[in-house]
Design a protein around this nucleic acid. Structure first.
Lengths: 381, 381
DNA sequence: AGCCACTATGAATCACCGA
DNA sequence: TTCGGTGATTCATAGTGGC
């Protein structure tokens, strides 16, 4: 049953003198706390993190084996950590970690939780009961989901994220301009098309995936770009193989993880060690409408086709420019879209940035448009 | 003797002796029951409807008026207790109508509920608590949502539907082939792109919309096509201006509505009166193979389409087998049905012999299934 | 090199009838 | 009620190997 057992504290808006904000120096930044996440969070002070991203067990309740039509076996999520006796047990677990999360979250911090229909309705109801205020539910539309092999239901092609603040009146951070820039000058919608995690990004060991449910970095990239600032502290209570940490490092955010399993912790630390932080200029995102670029290529940056910090150049190599995290471009004092910067540099009345700017990709120089074609192929539906 | 195994009958709608299924003649088909939906549903017998589609209100706890169960008025929602109280009120309301819905729904019936992040998590958790079994959550992705004017959040561009059966082991109906056909021969996914209701379809009176949240008919069309058969009874506890009734009439389904407000009832009746039912042939949908007559492999041998002694082989020609006079198959030491032998040879948990085994027929290699089709044509009248 | 064929796999609550 | 037999059912990527 979804119900609140104890009355929750007032939702907390940062009022000077009422809540002490813990300084970052007291925090285990860049560390993975071993053990149960509730215990781990108990070791942290009140009001100390800016964002919590949580990917809790989904309580899938899978039955027997499943085979594809060709007879091959589907590798299901049967790990111990996803087994709960009942909805009541799962609800208790959920209430426990959400309660602790609420305590360590700053008054103007935000919570993100991802889940599927197996668990997300319970999580959503409980976090509302605890006083969190839902700002959006976000649909991650998978461009390449696993089919329904037996033809018994609709292809389960999405997962749901909930974005919530500490309370109805609580402040929160939303980088509206960065999101709009990332989405080709259209407001970012509540449905995001992102491929599942595979290929080079998927952590493997001995030919096998290290974690059964590794999330794509593009998902975390958008979450953090939308709702944190550079230097913010991001905590992930179900750290797994550290996607949250890797993206936080790339984006210049500090991170804290909680993870019970040694194998996941080791893989995460090694992975984050290798992650390269973006440089200062690449991290600067659009702040106001005045600098607003018209960009159609933020999605390529997010998808990892173009890394923030990448140098672009024109065919004659008269100018170069640097790609920033939200898909804007910087060249000397000029900042804007790929089109706008190209126009100003050339002193031309207009410029098509897709054909003007060149990029070195797989050892060859190509116009940006070549990468756009690649991207379109990858997300078309 | 030519033998066709019994054609699959229309799936029985309940276990005989387990529950009495009310005959349709006892039901108020094509009527809108006035008043509160819980009261209205109480007037209906157990196990009497095949589908319930519900679009419940979700703004009870916010802004406007809020009444406690005893009828007293709740002041503006400003403190925690009141907020909790409003969720509790909404939960009680939800549990009440879902409980009654569960009673009148047939054992193999299905429930659909639509909502937004304001209420859908509570509805989903409660229906799970009541024993409903979620089959899919569906995202209605609006092609033309209202923008977020203040730029404070992501554009709220979708709503969520939950599709649930009576329980984990309950049967349910899913017209897989019809959905696949509707989606250009790809499995229908859990995210549906459908425009919001506007234009000619939107009911207006004196220049104003009659109902604030009229749903597009395309949405109901897909729901009913996917999970009901012609002649099924569809009930909508929050009938509004009758989208459910209009689509049910169009698709040859019977309907029952519940609606408190006279204005909505009048508009709905007028609207449904004008709706044109599709003719018989247009209503015929793609049948799944499972509904086709069953043919025993032996019948093809008997009919002379396949001679005893014929060699069969798999696509990669790893194995061969010989057809025997009684329709059994022999491959080395293995003897049995086309399915059983294929299963053992591959070491697979199961095998569809019709698609696994190939045969040389009229100079070309074909799966056995091709001959089955020929056979079906030859015995059809 | 480039193209094609073939294989592998991903958070999945994945049949149903008759004896 | 359990058990066994029949037979229905997959999409987008990534990777590998042959020609």
């Amino acid at each position: 049953m979804v119900q609140v057992l104890t009355k929750v504290r007032a939702p907390a808006r940062a009022e000077p003198g009422k809540a002490r904000i813990a300084p970052k120096t007291e925090l285990p930044l860049g560390q993975i706390l071993a053990g149960d996440c509730v215990e781990a969070m108990r070791s942290l002070p009140d009001n100390c993190v800016d964002l919590i991203f949580a990917d809790p067990p989904y309580n899938l309740q899978l039955g027997g084996d499943l085979n594809r039509p060709d007879g091959s076996h589907v590798d299901a999520v049967t790990d111990d950590w996803d087994r709960f006796d009942s909805f009541a047990t799962y609800d208790r677990f959920t209430r426990d970690w959400l309660t602790e999360a609420r305590r360590i979250l700053k008054p103007d911090g935000a919570l993100w939780v991802i889940g599927s229909y197996h668990n997300i309705f319970r999580v959503g109801a409980i976090l509302q009961d605890l006083g969190f205020w839902i700002l959006n539910d976000i649909v991650w539309r998978k461009s390449n989901p696993m089919p329904n092999f037996r033809g018994t239901r609709f292809t389960n092609a999405h997962e749901t994220l909930i974005w919530a603040s500490q309370g109805e009146k609580a402040k929160y951070h939303f980088n509206y301009r960065a999101m709009k820039t990332l989405n080709d000058e259209l407001q970012m919608r509540s449905d995001w098309v992102i491929p599942i995690c595979g290929g080079q990004e998927r952590l493997k060991k001995g030919g096998h995936k290290v974690h059964p449910t590794q999330k794509p970095e593009a998902l975390l990239y958008r979450v953090m770009l939308a709702t944190t600032e550079k230097g913010d502290v991001v905590l992930d209570p179900f750290f797994g193989t550290g996607t949250t940490g890797a993206v936080a490092k790339r984006l210049g955010r500090d991170w804290i993880g909680c993870e019970r399993e040694t194998g996941y912790r080791d893989a995460a630390l090694e992975r984050i060690e290798m992650a390269l932080p973006l440089d200062e200029s690449a991290l600067t995102t659009m702040q106001s409408r005045k600098d607003a670029p018209r960009v159609a290529f933020g999605a390529l940056v997010e998808a990892g086709l173009i890394a923030p910090g990448t140098q672009l150049f024109d065919k004659q190599r008269r100018w170069t420019a640097t790609v920033r995290a939200d898909g804007s471009l910087e060249s000397g004092k000029e900042i804007g879209s790929i089109h706008g910067v190209g126009k100003v540099l050339q002193g031309a009345p207009s410029c098509n940035g897709w054909t003007f700017w060149q990029i070195t990709h797989e050892g060859a120089d190509k116009p940006l448009d070549a990468l756009r074609q690649l991207y379109l192929l990858s997300v078309e539906d």
